[in-house]
Amino acid sequence: MSGTDGSTFLRMENLGLAYHGKPALEGVDLEIRRGAITALIGPSGCGKTSLLTCVNRLIDLVPGARAKGKVEFQGRDVLDPRADLFALRKRIGMLFQRPNPFPLSIRRNLELPLREHGLRDRAELAATVERTLRDVALWDEVKDRLEKPALALSGGQQQRLCLARALALEPEAMLMDEPCSALDPLASGAVEDLIVSLRGRVTVLIVTHNLAQARRIADDVALLWLQDGVGRLIERGPAAAFFAQPKEEITRAYLSGERG
């Protein structure tokens, strides 16, 4: 696949997660290739989103959630309590299922995180705002109303703004939690095209319910499944082989629509 050099970006080893002592996810071993788009698929409730939020430690915001195992990123364990979360989250951005711009102006939405990470120069801020908005093909739509509230945008525009907001920090990777599922087909297509355009530049780990979407965009695929009430990784591999010749019976059944 274009733009991926095949080196490992991030490695999960025996990753597990429990809510209030009740395991939700167990024994996940997964390697994410640098620059590739990796799709996490599986039925709802199997822990895909939980897995995603372990990577940027957003799981810390959930009371009672505890991760175990290892998420190795650049030679360090993300789950280490001493990890610098602010730097981690700057380098690994996230896009949510529902667009979640701040209740501020469009410009402030983009500038706030930039300022937070130390960019103060006005000209540079303005340039970054324009560049990232152009990146997500939003510039022409909003350039005359940057001071208007971001919540006045349509759902698809809001989601693209959120993508721009994350990309402005120049992350090495993006976590995406079903980023198209709350959008109408047209807006969904636009966001999907943007995700594809990130290939090679940014490593993408995307959760999706939509098998067709996974087929269209993914370089690698991993299937999570709920076994005895606990999410487990069933099968992973390059997309072409995964869809053409699944190794596991569950995967075959899921892909053919018999289960899931």
Partner: peptide, 19 residues
């Protein structure tokens, strides 16, 4: 708002103050 701010690597102090 809280999750968005955290995912952007903002400190809780800034998230509180600005958002």
């Amino acid at each position: 708002y809280r999750r968005a701010a955290a995912a952007l690597g903002m400190s809780r102090a800034s998230a509180l103050w600005h958002v």
